Structure formats: C-alpha cells, structure tokens
Amino acid sequence: MDNSPTQLDYYHDMWNLQSTATLVSHFKGDDGRHVLILDRTIFYPQGGGQPADTGFVYIHDLDVKFLVHDVRSKDGIVLHYGVFEGFGEEFETILKKGKEVSLFVDEHRRKLNSRLHSAGHLLDICMEKIGLGHLEPGKAYHFSDGPWVEYKGVIPPNEMQNKQKELELEANALITMGGKVSADILPYDEAAMLCGGILPDYVSKESTPRIVRIGDNPGCPCGGTHVLNISDITKVKVSQIRSKKGLTKVYYNIES
C-alpha cells in the first residue's frame, strides 16, 4: 500500500461535491469490506465529532460505480469503504493503480453534517456572549442523533433554565444576521491571532493549523466541513443543558 498522505481537497473547498482523483490502491479490509485509496479526496472521513461523507466513486474506463458507505483516516491516508455496484469478486483483478476516477459526495448528507457542525461552533461563540466564557470547550458530538457540545465547568442549577433560553436566542439572532464562514490554513502565529491570541495545547507551534471562522467572530482550529454562510444553519433549538461532575453538556438540534 502506498504510504503517501491523501490530499484533502475538502480542506480548501468545503462546498465542492464533485471532483476527480487517481486510484492509488484497492484491497479488502479485515471486516471484508472493499477499500479504495485515492491520491486526493473531497470525502470527509469520520472524526472530530462529525460523521463521514457518503456517495460514490465512478471508475471511468470500467464504467463502474463504487458506493462509498464509510470513510476513515489512518496516519494521513483516507480509506474509502464500500461496495462495487453490480460486480462480484472477479472484479478485483482488473482494478489497477493509476485509474482515473470521479468522486460524488452525497449532497444532502454533507449539508446536514455541515449545518450540525457549524451550529456546534456557533454555540461556542454564544456561550461567551451570554457570560459563560469561563467554561472551557471540551468534546463535541455533531451527529444527527442527538448532537451536543461539552464544556469543562458547571452552571449553577438556578441559572440553567435562563441560560438555555439566552443561548438559543443568541444563536438564532446570529443566524438571522448571517455572515461568511471560512477555513484557512495559516502559520501558527497568524492562526493564534485569529483565535483570540492563543491556540489549544494540542496544536504544535511548528504547524500550520486550519482555522475556521464563523462570521467576524474569533476562529478556532478545526478540520471539519461547515456551511457557506451562518444563515445556512437555518435555526438552532437548544433542547437541554446538563451540568454535573465538573462538566456541562449543551444538547441542541437544527430545524429547517
């Protein structure tokens, strides 16, 4: 297997849903699923609290579709898991390195995942605006079956209900105003300036982090996909806030 890292085209253009690439290798995983490795991809691999893209890869000279069911990343190499449409095992012998392919990401799934992910970042911004900026961001889960964002620190029980209402109102006010969403790969010092002067400890000072900005608000390092404009999130519903054992979880969803 080629050990060269996969070029992540979605890093530079989060809204491109069709592209071309070259096949690097094909094999079967330990679970029996077929795996394609390409030199570049617009498919987002699951990670950072965001689910993977789905869609298909079209192999030109063979007139064959590879249905992408899951995408994962390992050591910088993106693995596209799926099945060949209408072909049996004998197909493996004619699939060779260097074949040109076209990639098609499922638009509905990408947009839903991007809205959910962007809404999570928007809530981070709004926590500061409603006076909860002392809570330190932790984990996040941007899947459609119960998305949430987590913070280190607690909210007193007598403030919980009011803060839930304030958070939802603030988020939807920003959505109504709208604003461009951008992602840029920057030198460390420049990235830190866009993120309020400091980056998390896990970001190496020798790196060039990818910084996502939601409107004119301070940015944050993030590798996921996002909406083009804040208004594309449409509407946020904060369903619940829970604080216990030193952590606060904000449960939310998006509405059309």
Rank of each mutant, 00 (worst) to 15 (best):
G178K: 03
V35A: 11
D216T: 04
D189G: 03
Y58W: 10
G55A: 06
E107V: 09
Y252L: 00
Q50T: 03
K165V: 04
G223L: 14
I214R: 04
N16E: 15
K249I: 02
K152I: 02
V68R: 06
F143A: 12
P218Y: 05
D2Y: 15
D39E: 12
V68Q: 04
T234Q: 10
G55V: 06
P209R: 01
K139F: 09
S182C: 08
H26N: 07
N253H: 12
Q18K: 12
F87K: 08
S114D: 07
N172E: 03
V250L: 04
E89L: 13
K180M: 13
M177E: 15
T54P: 06
F84T: 02
G196N: 09
C126M: 04
D124C: 02
S243N: 05
S19C: 09
I185Y: 11
E190F: 08
L38A: 01
R210N: 10
L8R: 05
H226Q: 08
S4H: 15
I155Y: 05
Y58A: 04
S73P: 12
P51M: 14
G196L: 01
I233N: 05
I198P: 03
G32Q: 03
C220I: 07
T234V: 15
G178E: 07
M1P: 09
E168G: 02
S25H: 09
I241N: 05
T248Q: 08
V35L: 11
V57N: 01
R210P: 01
V64M: 14
L247G: 00
G47W: 15
I94P: 10
I130Q: 00
G131F: 02
L38N: 02
H108C: 04
K165A: 02
H80N: 07
L62D: 10
L194Q: 04
V238I: 11
E85H: 08
T176H: 12
F84E: 08
I214T: 09
K205C: 12
I233T: 08
L17M: 14
D145S: 15
F104Q: 03
C195V: 01
E85Q: 09
S114Q: 05
M1Y: 09
G179D: 03
L67Y: 05
